[in-house]
Simulated scan of single mutants.
Amino acid sequence: MKTYALIIKQNLPLTLAEAWDFFSSPHNLAKITPPEMDFVVTSTYNGEAKMYPGMVITYKVSPLLGIKLNWMTEITHVEEGKYFVDEQRFGPYALWHHQHHFKEIPGGVEMTDLLHYAIPFGVFGQLANGLFVANKVKEVFEFREKAVVELFGEYKGR
């Protein structure tokens, strides 16, 4: 299985507590996901629940051609205020391992995403990744970067 990696960094004009509170809540994901993906959290737990290792989150998402898919991730690691990891348990990828790291910097927080993913279907999946999946994944993160600036403003440092 061929895996792909993506590293994204973004500086935020937020305190560490503000960044953690926003990004560690699954219910904020729809705010930073492209609307055409029709992303909906379907988990039935209380939205105020604190993230914890073993937490399972379910979604409906339309990543391609408006086709609705079920997606389930598990929060496998959490160190409050520092990082958390979500891993796909069921969904469109053969592998999805997404680390979210937060670090205080002058005037805000540096957020780093480290994503490893793989597409099913062997050589056909590799072809699909080269033709459109890789670009779609990058577009989602580019949308998120712009959405975060709209929500919280531009990072200006100190």
Rank of each mutant, 00 (worst) to 15 (best):
Q88Y: 11
E87M: 14
P106H: 05
M55F: 08
Q88E: 12
P13C: 02
G91D: 06
Y45K: 07
L114Q: 12
N11I: 04
Y4H: 11
V40S: 09
T15H: 02
K146T: 12
Y52N: 12
E48F: 09
E145A: 08
G54I: 13
K156W: 03
N46M: 08
Y4D: 00
V148G: 00
V123A: 09
T76H: 05
L115K: 08
G107M: 04
P35T: 10
R158P: 10
L131A: 11
D113N: 10
D86N: 10
M1D: 02
P106C: 06
V56F: 06
L29F: 12
N135M: 14
K156I: 03
V78G: 07
Q10A: 06
I8H: 02
H101E: 13
K146R: 10
Q126V: 12
M51H: 02
T58E: 10
P106L: 05
P35D: 13
F141V: 08
S62V: 01
V123W: 12
T3C: 01
V41S: 01
M72E: 15
V56R: 13
L29W: 06
G91N: 11
V133D: 06
T112G: 11
T112I: 14
T44G: 03
Y52K: 13
F22H: 01
G107E: 02
F121I: 06
G81P: 00
K156Q: 06
G81E: 01
L151Q: 01
D38W: 01
D38I: 13
A5S: 15
I67S: 10
V40I: 08
R89S: 00
V41T: 07
E18Q: 15
H101N: 14
M111Y: 06
T73F: 11
V85F: 02
H97T: 15
G153E: 02
Y155G: 08
E48Y: 11
G153T: 05
Q99I: 15
F102D: 02
E36P: 09
A49H: 05
E79Y: 08
A118W: 00
D21K: 15
P34I: 09
F102R: 04
P13T: 05
N11K: 12
L12C: 02
H77M: 14
A118G: 00
E142W: 10
G81L: 05
